[in-house]
């Protein structure tokens, strides 16, 4: 077990080194959410005055959505990274080492989760600077980071699974493109399901992106009684953790199938 965790960490270490060495990537990870928040936030400001809109101000509604959306883009990078490792023969080197395939998948997903939490924290600061209100207060910040870390792991593991399945850099890009933006637009990132046509609302309710946004948004908007809010947050963390673990196991399994 200790060996397994160490393997995960060193696999993640390499990914984090890549992240730290690619300055444009760090810059983009801050600038992009800033653009989403200011452009989209301003464009849709009046949405908040629609009767039945769950937030007083659109920015408070949008900020947690942008956090989860960023984890999707981070996941894309993780998937393409694995496909690139495969293309360059680097994955073969990892697979020839005495390292569990699950540790390779888990390490890469872990790195994506940590980046997602870092990015989530930065988006949070940007949102506050733009005047967003955070109902949960300072005590909610660790939970906010955890609730961006877990979707970061979950969506990265999903992208890694696709990469391990498709086995080509060129093949993966269209698959991810096909999935990511529709996943955002059929979720409650931009609009609450209650204001959607029925068929879209049905999609939005089963969309894992909506599911990841829900508990984060509760931290911003508040509303429920403190006891109830705590229980909901714990439940969300448990479910996200189980989904993330299962998806990571799937990615590890698909990597192990490279032997056949």
């Amino acid at each position: 077990m200790r060996g397994f965790l160490a393997d995960c960490w060193w696999i993640a270490w390499r990914e984090l080194k890549h992240f730290a060495r690619l300055r444009p990537r760090i810059l983009a990870s801050v600038v992009q959410p800033l653009l989403w928040l200011t452009l989209m936030g301003n464009m849709l400001q009046r949405a908040a005055s629609i009767p039945g809109f769950p937030a007083e101000r659109y920015l408070d509604y949008m900020a947690p959505g942008v956090m989860v959306m960023s984890t999707l883009f981070g996941a894309t990078t993780a998937g393409l990274g694995l496909a690139l490792d495969l293309r360059l023969g680097y994955l073969q080197k990892l697979l020839a080492a005495p390292v569990d395939r699950l540790a390779i998948a888990a390490g890469k997903a872990l790195a994506a989760g940590l980046q997602a939490a870092l990015q989530g924290g930065l988006i949070f600061l940007v949102a506050l600077a733009l005047g967003a209100r955070f109902a949960a207060g300072p005590a909610g910040v660790p939970l906010l980071l955890l609730l961006t870390f877990l979707p970061g792991v979950l969506f990265a593991a999903l992208a890694l699974s696709f990469a391990a399945w498709v086995r080509s850099h060129e093949g993966l890009m269209p698959v991810l493109n096909l999935i990511v933006l529709p996943l955002v637009f059929t979720s409650n990132v931009i609009m609450p399901a209650s204001l959607m046509p029925a068929w879209l609302a049905a999609l939005a309710r089963v969309n894992p992106v909506s599911f990841a946004v829900g508990p984060l948004r509760a931290l911003f908007l508040g509303g429920a009684e403190p006891g109830r809010a705590g229980a909901a947050a714990v439940e969300a963390v448990v479910v996200l953790a189980v989904l993330a673990a299962a998806t990571t196991a799937l990615a590890g399994h698909l990597l192990a199938r490279h032997r056949d």
């Binding site: 060996g3 160490a6 393997d7 060193w10 270490w13 390499r14 080194k17 890549h18 060495r21 690619l22 360059l88 023969g89 680097y90 073969q92 080197k93 990892l94 020839a96 080492a97 005495p98 390292v99």
Partner: peptide
């Protein structure tokens, strides 16, 4: 195992590449 694709990591230094490799072999 040294594959015919030269599998070294461009974004790490030479020493970091080796340290990472060493960690994989515990």
């Amino acid at each position: 195992y040294v594959s015919q694709d030269v599998a070294v990591d461009d974004l790490l230094t030479g020493r970091e590449n080796l340290h990472f490799q060493g960690r994989l072999y515990h």
